[in-house]
Simulated assay, not measured.
Amino acid sequence: MIAERLAIPDVILFTPKSFGDDRGFFFESFNQQRFAELSQCSVQFVQDNHSKSQKNVLRGLHYQLAPKAQGKLVRVVQGEVFDVAVDIRKNSPSFGQWVGATLSAENKQQLWIPAGFAHGFLTLSDSAEFLYKTTDYYAPDYERSILWNDKDLNIQWPISELPSLSGKDQAGKSFKEADYFDH
C-alpha cells in the first residue's frame, strides 16, 4: 500500500497493491497495523457505512462535532466519485482549504479524512457504491452540514449542471456560519 499526503497533509490518499489476472483481482482493503504506520494515526474504527448514489448526486459537506467527531476512511466499490475534504479546524494553517480526489472501483484508492474536516462527494458515473469506516458512531445531534457551493470555499466540483441534493444538504450553512473545531 502506498500513502500520499495531499495538499492538506492530514488528508491521505491510499493506493493498495492489487494482484490481478484473468480470473479477477485481490487486494487488502484494510490492515490496522499498516494504516497506523503509514498515517501515523492511532484510530479505532467502530462503524462501517455503505451508500449508493445515482449520477450527479452530491452528498455533503457533512461532519460531526466533538465529542462525537468522526474520522473517515472512504472508498468506492462500484463506479466513480469526486471526493472532497474541507479543513474546519479553526487553528489549523489550512483552515478553510479543501482537497479533492477521484475515487473509483477501478483505481481502488481510499481517502483518510480525519476528524475536524467536513466531507462530501459527487457521483461521476451512472451510479456509485461508497463505503466508509468511521471512528465514532453516527450521532445526529452532533451532525452538521456546510453548503456544497459555498463561495468562500470555492470547491471546484467537476459539474456541468446543478447536482441532486438531499433536503438536509440544501439547508446546509455557509462556511462563515458553520460550527468549527477548536484544534
Score class of each variant (00 low, 15 high):
residue 119 H to E: 02
residue 99 V to T: 10
residue 26 F to L: 11
residue 71 G to Q: 02
residue 158 P to I: 07
residue 80 E to M: 08
residue 155 I to V: 11
residue 172 G to L: 06
residue 95 F to D: 06
residue 50 H to Q: 14
residue 131 L to A: 11
residue 82 F to P: 00
residue 65 L to V: 01
residue 1 M to Y: 11
residue 82 F to D: 03
residue 103 L to P: 01
residue 29 S to L: 10
residue 84 V to W: 08
residue 90 K to L: 13
residue 67 P to G: 02
residue 16 P to N: 07
residue 169 D to R: 09
residue 52 K to T: 12
residue 172 G to T: 04
residue 178 A to F: 02
residue 113 I to K: 02
residue 65 L to C: 01
residue 107 N to D: 08
residue 164 S to V: 14
residue 67 P to N: 05
residue 2 I to N: 14
residue 57 V to C: 09
residue 115 A to S: 13
residue 28 E to H: 04
residue 137 Y to H: 15
residue 111 L to S: 03
residue 168 K to R: 15
residue 15 T to W: 09
residue 161 E to N: 13
residue 60 G to L: 06
residue 104 S to E: 04
residue 77 V to I: 15
residue 157 W to D: 06
residue 23 R to F: 10
residue 164 S to H: 14
residue 74 V to W: 02
residue 104 S to I: 10
residue 124 L to H: 08
residue 176 K to Y: 12
residue 159 I to E: 09
residue 43 V to C: 02
residue 34 R to V: 14
residue 25 F to Y: 15
residue 51 S to G: 03
residue 20 G to V: 06
residue 170 Q to A: 14
residue 130 F to S: 03
residue 77 V to L: 10
residue 150 D to C: 02
residue 118 A to N: 05
residue 110 Q to L: 10
residue 174 S to Q: 13
residue 104 S to W: 07
residue 165 L to T: 03
residue 143 E to R: 12
residue 141 D to M: 12
